[in-house]
Write a protein that binds this DNA or RNA. Structure first.
Length: 286
DNA sequence: CACGAGACCTGTTCGC
DNA sequence: TGCGAACAGGTCTCGT
C-alpha cells in the first residue's frame, strides 16, 4: 500500500481549500480538501473495513462532527473530529477520493462520509485490507508505533540502539512499524541502497556510523518521495512520480545506476527485496 | 519472547 | 488462446 510519502501526499490534499481544486482529479494536487467539512451521514459498504466501533455506533457517533485537521502518523491518516478521531489505514490498495455532485458509487468503494455541503469522502480499497477506526483515544491504535522518521528528537544513535538489539535482518527491521514508523517495501529497499547496506545484514552487525547514515538515507528517500507526490504503481494511480526514480525497486535484472552490476531480487521476510550486490556488499551476510 | 509462516482479499501478469 | 500460479505498496495471528 501507500507508504509514508503516499499517505503524506493524500493528507496534504485533504487540507486543501474546501472549494479549490477539481473534484475527481487524478492528481492529488488538484483535489478539494475536507478540513472544516461537517459530516452529515455515513455509509459502510464492506463491514470489515470498520475496525471499531460497531457499525451502529460508528454511524450514530460520526455524524454532526466537523473534521478539525488532517494529520499523518506512520502510514495512518489521522482526522480529528470535535469529539473523537477518525483513523484510516490504506494498507495495500486503499485510496481516498473527495468529490461532489453525487457521482455514482465506484467499484470497490468500502465506506463513504457524506458532508453537509454536498461533498463526500469515498474510501476505495480493491483488496479490502484497509481499515477505519473511530476512537476516543488515538493511543489505543497508534500507541505502539515507533518514532516518526522526521522527528527531530530521533537521532542516528537512537536508530542504532534499536537495530543493535536484534539479530533480525535490516530489511525486516525497517518494515517493523514499532521500530520506526512509515517505511514500507519500496522505501526500505531504496533507503538501503542509498545507505549501501545489504538487506540481509543482521541489525546487530550495523555500526553506529552506519545507522547514522541509514537514517539520513531514510530521510532522503522519503523526502524525495514526498516531493514527487509519492509513487503510482499498477492500477493505483494517484498522480505521483517517484516510481520513475526508483534505483533498485522493481529494477531486477537491470544495471545498477551507480556501478552497472545487475540488480538482484530475493525474498526476505516474505517480501520481494531488490538490491545491488556490489554497492550493497557487506562483509557479514548470513 | 522472537521469529517465520499463514491468513486476509482482489486483480494483473507470467509461464506453460 | 487459455488457465492456473505467482505476485502486488501491509499487518495481524498463530504455532514453534
Amino acid at each position: 500500500m501507500p507508504e509514508l510519502p503516499e499517505v503524506e501526499t493524500i493528507v496534504r490534499s485533504l487540507r486543501h481549500p474546501l472549494e479549490g481544486g477539481l473534484a475527481n482529479s487524478k492528481n492529488m494536487n488538484d483535489r478539494p480538501g475536507v478540513v472544516g467539512r461537517l459530516i452529515s451521514s455515513a455509509q459502510i459498504l464492506w463491514s470489515k473495513t470498520l475496525a471499531e466501533p460497531s457499525s451502529e455506533e460508528f454511524l450514530a457517533n460520526v455524524v454532526q462532527q466537523t473534521i478539525q485537521s488532517a494529520e499523518r502518523r506512520g502510514k495512518f491518516i489521522v482526522l480529528p473530529l470535535e469529539k473523537q478521531t477518525l483513523l484510516i489505514h490504506l494498507r495495500m490498495s486503499g485510496d481516498i477520493r473527495v468529490e461532489n455532485d453525487q457521482p455514482p458509487i465506484q467499484p470497490h468503494d468500502r465506506a463513504i462520509l457524506n458532508f453537509e455541503d454536498g461533498y463526500r469522502l469515498a474510501f476505495n480499497d480493491t483488496r479490502k485490507f484497509g481499515r477505519i477506526w473511530l476512537v476516543n483515544d488515538t493511543r489505543t491504535v497508534l500507541g505502539g508505533l515507533g518514532p516518526e522518521p522526521f522527528d527531530e528528537n530521533f537521532h542516528g544513535q537512537d536508530l542504532f540502539e534499536r537495530l543493535h538489539r536484534s539479530s533480525r535482518n535490516i530489511k525486516t527491521l525497517l518494515l517493523d512499524q514499532t521500530l520506526i514508523a512509515g517505511i514500507g517495501n519500496i522505501y526500505a529497499d531504496e533507503a538501503l541502497f542509498r545507505a549501501r547496506l545489504h538487506p540481509a545484514l543482521p541489525g546487530k552487525e550495523i555500526s553506529a556510523g552506519q545507522a547514522e547514515f541509514l537514517l539520513a538515507s531514510i530521510r532522503g528517500v522519503l523526502t524525495e518521495g514526498i516531493a514527487r507526490n509519492g509513487s503510482s504503481i499498477d492500477w493505483v494511480y494517484r498522480g505521483g512520480d517517484f516510481q520513475n526514480h526508483f534505483r533498485v525497486y522493481q529494477r531486477t535484472g537491470l544495471p545498477c545506476l551507480e556501478c552497472g552490476t545487475v540488480i538482484e531480487k530475493r525474498v526476505i521476510n516474505q517480501r520481494s527485496t531488490h538490491f545491488c550486490p556490489k554497492c550493497q556488499f557487506s562483509v557479514k551476510i548470513p
